[in-house]
Amino acid sequence: MKRTSIPERLAGNRYVTDEDESHIHVDQDLARSTGTGKRIVAVCPAHVYTEEPDGTISVEYAACFECGACLAVAAPGALTWHYPRGGTGVQFREG
C-alpha cells in the first residue's frame, strides 16, 4: 500500500469545523515547564500539535479525532481540552 502522510490521510476524513471556536487551548508556560508540550506532540495520532522552533506548541484543532489522548498525558492546567460543540468536529463514516 502506498505510504501516505498524516495530512493526506486526514483529507479522506469528514470534518465539520467549528470556525468560531477552538476546543483546545495550550498554556505555553506550563506546557514547557511540565514537558506536556513534547508529550502531546508525540501521542496525538492526528498531528494536531506541533512544536515550533521557538518552543511554543501550535494547535491545528480542526484535525482533531477527539480521542482525548493528549488530555490524559497532560499535566494539570497545561491543556484545556473539551469536546467541540455539538454537531461539529470529526464525523466518522466508517468507525
Binding site: 505510504r3 479522506g12 476524513n13 479525532f65 490524559a72
Partner: peptide
Amino acid sequence: STDVFDHFLGHRFIAPFLEGGEIAEYGSHL
C-alpha cells in the same frame, strides 16, 4: 503514536495484506 502505527502498516508480514488497498478513513479513540 503515528510512527508506531506506520511501522505496523509497513511491517513485512502485515504490508502484504494491505497491498493495493487505500485508506478510506483514519482515526483514533481511547
